[in-house]
Structure formats: C-alpha cells, structure tokens
Design a protein around this nucleic acid. Structure first.
Lengths: 340, 340
DNA sequence: GTGAAAGCGCTAACAC
DNA sequence: GTGTTAGCGCTTTCAC
C-alpha cells in the first residue's frame, strides 16, 4: 500500500489556477465568487477528491464542532440508551462525538477523561457518569473554572444544567403500585448503595411504606445473579414477603428465575417490579412490570441544550441560566405484578 | 458565566520568561532542558492550568491520536460489546475515539460518516457496520484509495484486515448440538435475511441438516416479538418441529415466552438454542443454551492491529499484509436444550 | 470578484 | 540549554 498524502487546499488552488482564498470561498459557499470560477474549482475538488482538513479549520475558527461524551459501562441499559440518543441528536446538529467511558475500577479516570476532552478542544461536554460514592466531588470544584459548557444527564450538579429522571419517584411508583395490587410485604433489591440512583430508589420505597426494617432489603450489584441471590436471602430473612421491587430489570429477571426454581408463582405468590424497561422485559415469564426512564429522550434534550449554550457563548451572549429538567418516570404494568 | 479564554503556550512562556520553544520541550518531556528551567516552567503550567491544544499538535504532527469507529444501533448486543472493547483498547493505547453510528434507515449515512472521519484526520478507522444487502459495495470500491488504515470487525472485506467470528460455524454448532440432544426436527428463526450474518447462520444450519424445506424457517427481525411470532408460525407450518435455533438471544427469548403461552415445556417438548450469549440469557426460564461470539475480545485485537498499521505507516514501513482473523464461536450449553 | 499577508497554537530544524 | 525561524492547512482582514 502506498502512503497517500491527502490533498490540501493549496494543491486545489494550484491545479485550478486560482488563489487559495478563492478555493476557501468555494468550499465555504461564500457568495462572492464568479459562477464559472466556482464551477471550475468544484470540478478540481471533485477530481482530486479534496476534503477540507477539519483540524486546521478548528484551529483557526476556535470551534471544533465536536462534543465530548463521558459515560460508563455500556452494558448497563441506561448509559447505552443515553449514548444512542446523544449520538443521534449530535449528528442532527452537525457535531462529531468524542467518546470516553470511565470504568468504576479506575478511580480518577473521570478527571483524565475530562482533561483529554478539553485538550481536544471539544465545544461542549455531556457528562453522564453515574454518581457513585464521592466520585464527583472533584468535578463540582472544577466545574466553575471550565472553559466549555457541560450538561449533565442523570446527575444532579449543584449549579449546572442537567436532565434527570428522579429515581426516588420511580421507587414510589413501584411501591405504590404493588400496594395497590394488594401486596402487603414488599421487599427491596437495591443496586450497590454507593450508587446515588440506588439509594434514591430505596428512599422512594421507604417514602411509601410507613416503616421498614433492614431485613426487607438486599443490596445487589445490578446483575441478574445478584437478583437471584437477593430473592433467596430475602425469603429467608423476611418470610412474610409477598412482593419484590428490584432496582433494575436484570435483577428482577434474577428474581423471576429464583422464583421458578423455588416453585413460587409470579404474580400469585410473589409480585415483582423491575426498573428500566429493557426491551426484553416484556418477554420475561411472566412479562415484567417495570419503570420506564426515557433516557434516550432526556439525552437528546441535553444535547440540544448544550448546543444552545455553545451557540450563545460563540456569540458572546450571556450564559443561559443553569436549568435542571426533571422527567417523569412511567410505570409500565405487565403480568408480574397483577395477580389476575 | 464569564467566557474563559484557554491558556496558550505563549502565555506560559511569557510568564516564565522563557521562549515558547522551551515550554514546548518541557511539555514534551524532552531531555535538553535545564532542571531548574523545567521546574520553573512546570510551576507556571500548573498555576495557569495550561493544557496543550491537541488540535494544534495534530495539525503539525500529522497525527491526531484519534480513531474513528463506525458501528450501528447499540441496542444490538454485538455492536455494544464491540464498542466497549474498542474503547478500552483504544484508551490503553492512548487514542481518543470519534464515534459514528450509522442507522439502517439512512442509506448512505455510512459514506457520510467515513468522509467525516477522514476530515477529522483520524489516524485509523474501525469499521463494524453489519453487512446488510449491498450496503458495503461503495466501500469496497473506495477502500484502496483511502489515506488511513481501516480494520473491520464482523465484516469480511475483499482485501483488508478483519476480525470475524464466522456465523456459519455458529449455525452448525447449534444445529449439531440439538441433533446430539436427540431432537430431530429443527426449525430456524433467522434475523432479517438481508443481513449477511443471518444468512450465514442459516447456511450453517443447512450444512448440518441433510435437507431442509422453506416451512422450517421463519424470518424474524432480531426482536423478541418476532421470536414469539416465529414460534407460533413455525408450529403451524411445521408441526413435527421439536427444536428451534434462533439467530439471537432476544428472538430465543420470544420463543421461550411463546412456548410458555402455548403450554409447551422447554426443553422436554421443545429444544431452544439462541445466539450471542447476552448476560440475561443465563437467567431466562429455562436458562438458554446459546453461542458466544467474544466480540469485545475481537474488537480489542482489531484495535491493536490498527495501531500496528498506523505505527508502520508513520515510519514509512511497508504496509502489513491484510490479515483476516477468524475466531471460534463457542457453544454454551444450558437447560433449554438438554431434556434431562 | 480575487489575491496577498497575517496568524490560529504548536513543533521541527537549526543556530548560538 | 536555549532562542529564532519557518510552517502544518486553513480562514480572515484588507487591498486591488
């Protein structure tokens, strides 16, 4: 394979017998070019397969038309849907996406990722890293000094725009629903309690139940395997339990699986509600009642918001007031929580 | 919010009372700087929060340390795992990732994506778009003229490096296994037959069964809903069927669901094998026998390969011979295909 | 309408 | 060791 040099504006100009600027005007669709000249230049561009170097452009224009996205493990449904939504909307608005996945294992990878994005001169950043332990403390300090706008998804910053579906409300919805269906002893399988979202769902569950005791709760790790363990342990420590609310659909699946193994009928002997509404959940056996969070939608709106902030900044207008948008979670009722 | 100007190397130099060059040497860890000077400069850098502009660097170095990734809908398990693997390895090797998702709806979005990545001066491209219909024809034409190396994942180009797990082998594995378990009439639920992977799995299934007829096949769309429809229709048109091989785990889930509705016992009345080994499949009821494709692993190797090609090209060495690496799919046996 | 000159932020090549 | 000069590929004044 021969190493190809890519064509530059200079070569096009030379070939066309015009100046570099004229070519520049053509590729930027400026009006002040004679029609013939324009056509000539376009032909040459076509022939040489010339493409303007976006990097050189960014350098001089101070605008890269690039957004940074920071999120986590895509095998969680939320981040995956979020990324999909972000990509779509970014693409619509003409942005490229630079992707950083920060993994829970590596502690200050987030800071790394941020610096990297800044170095790449992104025009803005979508931050969608789940709040775990104190993993955002550094960011709240740094945020006011950043040179580019940031919009958060599923994270509640102190003073920055964010799109959030409040998990606490989800917890309430699920629990209310189970009570309404006649279940009386509602166990909870949480995500890792270091995750803020997991704690919020727990709070929502507590909000509805007048009093709760520790033996009604099992701390899972989002995996189906932990859901399975969770049901077994909850049944042992809280025998009167007749329903379970799981903090995600995978764990709910583990519960269904364990229930089958134990010969418990769902929903007759045990009501089950999950969270996330992964597409598979409608086909579990029985189909799973769950909570939808519309994350792709949130994320699209986040990108639009970010775009506004970028445009405003470009025109040196006053910055937009940080806005925290809350989305309503939605209960999706299926068989697993409806005893005929 | 004040619009912040980002700090440039010039300001650092001025502040430190040295030349721009010296600062450049410091940030690039060049040896030929006096220790004190270095320390001084580093202090200033720290204080001003200076970060080198990666864009300016790329421009002059002709190296962006950026890879382009083109893939599809992340709600398919394969692309999602692939992207995860790519991100990890790219990160390891010090690359940023520019992500493009091409959706089936928009026909020549792929070409768009490619041009965009080239404009962004990526150092190389990982191409992981499923082959659907003739959607790659244009690319095979264009490929030899590209200025950057491309490695394919799950795609078989005519003459370029690629990492593939041959779907035909998967089809064989699944079918052989079902026969070995004593099933005799094996139906097939395919993905959309415009997808090459779907056709390959079908071919593998045909390889094992000496003769097959159209009524043994149902063309699904990868969704669980289509798996459900598939089982119902297959039972109608092929009543003696006692096992189903589904081209992905979601459709297999739909089959399990339909089987429950119809009062068919799995695996006693009906054997079921899926494909992909999504994490949930181990917790379906019954747990699903399936085929693992190790896509994250393939993708990492693809990135390493791409990195080699980039390094080689940088040093003007001869290009590496295009290598097509094949990975063995692996049968994961669970309850759904093992009648006691 | 078109071109010449300057410069975005940085590095490479060469002086000293 | 350090500074000077040139220039990556492009856009932006400002002449003509």
């Amino acid at each position: 394979m021969v190493v190809k040099k890519s064509v530059t504006i200079r070569e096009v100009a030379q070939e066309a017998g015009v100046s570099i600027q004229t070519v520049s005007r053509v590729i930027n669709n400026r009006p002040d070019v004679a029609p013939e000249t324009r056509r000539l230049v376009q032909t040459i561009i076509e022939r040489l397969g010339y493409q303007p170097n976006a990097i050189a452009r960014s350098l001089i224009r101070r605008r890269s038309h690039t957004l940074g996205v920071v999120t986590t493990e895509l095998d969680h449904y939320g981040p995956m849907r979020g990324l999909t939504g972000i990509e779509q909307e970014a693409n619509n608005l003409g942005y490229s996406l630079i992707l950083s996945l920060v993994h829970r294992r590596e502690p200050d990878h987030g800071e790394h990722a941020l610096n990297n994005l800044l170095a790449q001169q992104v025009d803005g950043i979508i931050w969608a890293v789940p709040e775990i332990g104190n993993n955002h403390a550094w960011l709240w300090d740094k945020l006011p000094h950043l040179s580019v706008p940031v919009v958060f998804v599923g994270v509640s910053p102190h003073d920055a725009p964010s799109m959030v579906t409040p998990s606490r409300v989800s917890g309430r919805l699920a629990t209310e629903h189970l009570l309404a269906q006649g279940y009386q002893h509602i166990g909870l399988i949480t995500g890792p309690l270091s995750w803020k979202a997991a704690r919020q769902r727990q709070l929502g569950w507590q909000d509805i139940l007048s009093k709760t005791t520790p033996n009604q709760t099992f701390e899972g790790d989002w995996s189906a395997a932990s859901g399975e363990r969770g049901l077994r342990q909850l049944l042992a420590q809280y025998p009167e339990m007749d329903a379970v609310y799981a903090s995600n659909d995978q764990m709910a699946l583990g519960v269904l699986n364990a229930a089958h193994q134990l010969g418990l009928r769902v929903p007759e002997d045990l009501g089950v509600v999950g969270t996330d509404n992964i597409p598979e959940s409608a086909f579990f056996w029985p189909p799973l009642t769950t909570i939808r969070h519309q994350i792709a939608q949130n994320s699209k709106i986040a990108v639009r918001q970010l775009n506004c902030m970028i445009e405003n900044k470009q025109q040196n207008q006053d910055a937009i007031q940080p806005e925290q948008v809350h989305f309503e979670p939605e209960l999706i009722i299926r068989k697993s929580s409806v005893p005929s």
